[in-house]
């Protein structure tokens, strides 16, 4: 039994070393000036029929930027969407910076955005999903206990694009993207041991770092 468990841990460690994540980064517009002090909000796109950009991914990006710069105040997504209700719901959310201009015609909206003192609005569109999977695993319950045996593996892909709107300039000023992928494994000898590729976390770090560099450029 001990030998079997040791083998599983060794296999896990070996396969853990095989977990890889590829990062593809693109920045279309070079930053011209960074933020010295101000507020931003990061919002997820939620209007696609079959997926929503994950709220925890948006939180992750926000935390990454907050940790990286004390000068940047990141307004939490939920707080912003509630404060602006119903103008940032999936049905009503502006798809271009020009649409925000049309919203500003409403005195209550203009007043609230002015109160929030927003410098940048960053939209994140994308998702993380499992791709191929293979292997098999059987689990059983008997009088002496329960256990599983087998091996499973699956791929995970994250694809996110960030679009940056500058409120002062009233223009879209940049786009960035992160594409990561990785392979996760789950060997099981009595106990299944998941070795999960940190695909989404890597995408968060990648996109968060790019955004932080953009927002901090020149400051």
């Amino acid at each position: 039994m001990k030998r079997a468990l040791l083998s599983v841990f060794l296999l896990g460690g070996l396969l853990g070393g095989c977990v890889t994540a590829n990062v593809d980064e693109m920045t279309f517009d070079a930053p011209v000036a960074g933020m010295t002090d101000g507020s931003i909000v990061i919002l997820g796109r939620r209007h696609a029929p079959d997926y929503d950009t994950e709220p925890d991914f948006i939180d992750c990006i926000g935390s990454h930027i907050s940790r990286g710069s004390e000068n940047i105040n990141v307004i939490p997504e939920g707080q912003f969407v509630d404060a602006m209700y119903p103008w940032f719901e999936p049905r009503t959310a502006p798809l271009s910076i020009e649409s925000v201009g049309r919203l500003m015609v409403l005195p209550s909206v203009a007043g609230k955005l002015s109160e929030l003192d927003l410098d940048y609005m960053i939209w994140i569109d994308g998702r993380t999903q499992d791709t191929n999977s293979s292997g098999s695993m059987t689990c059983g319950v008997g009088p002496t206990g329960a256990g599983c045996f087998g091996f499973g593996t699956w791929g995970t892909e994250s694809e996110y694009e960030a679009t940056i709107w500058n409120f002062d300039a009233g223009a879209e000023v940049g786009k960035m993207s992160a594409l990561t992928s990785g392979q996760s494994y789950m060997p099981a000898v009595v106990v299944p041991i998941p070795i999960i590729a940190p695909v989404q976390d890597t995408a968060c770090d990648s996109l968060g770092t790019q955004l932080l560099q953009y927002l901090s450029a020149g400051s």
Binding site: D52, Y85, P86, E89, P90, R91, T92, R127, Q129
Partner: peptide, 30 residues
């Protein structure tokens, strides 16, 4: 509500209903 967000069917249906109510309000106002 995407499946990836939720732990249980009931939580997911609840959140989808809350989103539908919010959407009803957005549709009503606009």
């Amino acid at each position: 509500t995407p499946t990836a967000f939720m732990q249980s069917d009931s939580d997911a249906v609840n959140l989808a209903a809350v989103m539908a109510l919010r959407d009803a309000g957005a549709n009503f106002i606009t």
